[in-house]
Design a protein around this nucleic acid. Sequence first.
DNA 1: AGCACGCCGACT
DNA 2: GTCGGCGTGCTC
Length: 837
Amino acid sequence: MEDLFGHSYPSTNKTLFADIILPVPIPRSFTYSVDPEIQDEIGIGYRVMVQFGKKRILTGIVAKVHQKAPEAYKAKPILDLLDDFPIVNALQIKFWGWMAGYYCCHIGEVMNAALPSGLKLSTESKVQIHPDFDLENPSFPMDERELVILEALEKNPEMNVDQLEPLVAAKDLHKIIKSLLAKKAILVYESVKEKYSPKIETRVRFSPEYLSESHKLNELFEKIKGKVKQENVLLKYLQQVPVFNDQALNEQGLAKKVLTDAGCSSSSIDTLVKNKVFETFKIKISRFDPIKVEEKSIELSQDQLEAYESIQHEFGTKSTVLLHGITGSGKTEIYIKLINEVLDSGSQVLLLLPEIALTTHLVSRLQKVFGDTMGIFHSRYSDNERVDVWQGVLSGKYNFIIGVRSSLFLPFDSLGLVIVDEEHESSYKQFDPAPRFHARDAALMLAWLHQAKTVLGTATPAFESFYNAQTGKYGYVKMDKRYGGAELPHFHLADILKDKKKNLLKLDFTRLMREKIQEALNNQEQVLIFQNRRGYAPYISCEECGWIPECEHCDVSLTYHQYQNELRCHYCGFKEKVPNKCQACGSEKITTVGSGTERIEENLSLLFPEARILRMDLDTTRSKYGYQKILEEFGSGNVDILVGTQMITKGLDFDRVSLVGIVDADRILFYPDFRSGERAFQQITQVAGRAGRRNKTGNVIVQTRRPDQLIFNHIIEGKYTEFYQQEMGERRQFYYPPFVKNIKIVVKHKDFKITETAAFQLKNLLVEIEGRKIILGPEKALIGKIKNLFHFEIWIKLERSTQAQEHFKHEMAQKISELHGDKRFRSVRFLVDVDPS
DNA sequence: AGCACGCCGACT
DNA sequence: GTCGGCGTGCTC
């Protein structure tokens, strides 16, 4: 507490209390008392250690400090204050609170998602010998295994429980510790363990005495003359660190690794250290390689400049702008200019990208402009790397972050601009685990909390966003020319059924598709083939009786993967060998049905034996750099055809791709869900955007059984708005978003009957809630059982007003916990998904 | 969620 | 007898 003159006083003698966010799924805040010693330091965003329940010690985050003692119970004290400065700021706490409220989850779940686990301290149980216990003179008989433990502790007075595990059979350990504890032979206590460790580098440099007088160095060389190895070390060092020119350089030293990499042995360096010629020291270094800024300023084309100015103009009255720019229209340069401007004004910038787009050229492009001031937040980063980025934001090292959805949680304190690239991308919304937030929507809230501007960039806006632009809530800027005057690709519809009748459909490919592929191959151009289904065949089947192998744990057929010759469940990971006989009738006539990427790849190699083919799907990109490797391979031009799932629709920019083929457009289009049309439009347009660049018009072949569908017309002609309006008519009529708010509740349990009953009872309770709403279901989910849990779904359609939503969500939470209180439904899980995808 | 407490069956 | 199965209740 400070007075007017900035003097600080110890706090008043009133006891302080703190509301702590704890990583537990309980919808309550927990109040602890603050001991006087830490009263002056504690504040919002500090990490603390508290006891929770009888045994658990947890780390939590201070959400609020106040003087109101809880009435119903006596607050436990905070055990320890863990930081010298807050690790989370007040805006973040607000953001967490909003997220928990909006997405109907617990704030502890938000905290878990927000903090890199390196910042979540873990406790470990440590064991030591009881001070009053005498091993030589035990007051009770001991068995051999107890003795083993005690002897180990004798040697090493502080051990954690894990370390003891190898000494005895794992199952017994708990028992032994318990009995030793009861006999007062040992003590068990919890200790906190910081998981994050900065990256440390060992460096060497001249000892100061050698440096102060230059003749000493000459003497040194005399002294070690003939000792080739040591000489070599010195020369290498001087080569890297020319201390003769500038003595100050010695201070920095040289990484020991540089010398060893250059062929100096570690022992020869050690000798120099032993003789006090060199000294070693350790410093913290960044996990990220330094990056040079290569291009400071960028030139905008006329179109880009106009778009940029329109955005600025819209920002005059609106805080969010939808930038609707077709693929290749050059949104990146506009981003760069906007980012530069905000950075110059001293504010921070966040650029969100979908997971899959983060390894692409966009990142390296931006890196060239922004260098080391740009932090990258990747989902494949290790935990230490994440903490490094987190601390980079805290320290001000990074004022610009480019990252995936979880980068929303970084400790920004003054965002000026948030850009959500590919804002339509459905992977921004995820279901598991909670919080089930939509990164675009959360970004808008985050920006609002910071009073920052937001740009939503896309070639195919999400209908929600376009609706907001149409109704004037967002500004709208359109770019419909390709950068450098390149033309849009030509679309061709290929009728699968027609070709089939005429026997022209070969191995899933229509005649038109085959001809166009051949043409591209002849011209040394590259081809992308899109099939949104991995594996070899979606299922196998007995020709005699129609038997189809299904997953033991889920309500799905097993996908055949030829490469490993196994059947796999794409929902739970279950695997089994391919049966050689039908398990129902014993027939050996088993065939594969349908085509996934594996089979498409095989078919292509049969149709075009001379072509070099590569496949990109979850199975070929599982390793850390798998995705990048395939992209590089394709980019190098050593590959003619790339077959892939969704993955190939993102971030591929290769000039030599002239043809894009979609094997089965119907699969995208006829998915049973109100968004299927929107999604089909987006996916087909996105993948088509990969065809043809700069100076060559590309081709897109869309194979379908229903070429008469109106949507194809809209896609082919690029008529987004017409398509939007047509779909909107239906959405309005049948109460779909954006005209209503959707909430989905998934009811899960291992017993079918219990799941069903719980779901129906919940519906009955929800119906009682006041306000206008439509409740659909419960219905068995599309996939009725996953991992041995039955799924039922309830869909709720609500008025859009915030008030109506908040009221409903609040009541709903009560009803769910009411139902949970019923002992029959104790173990039933109710998952709430707001704005489900 | 985790963890304790408490109440029942099958084992050294 | 006790160990351990899991149903129930609570966590500031």
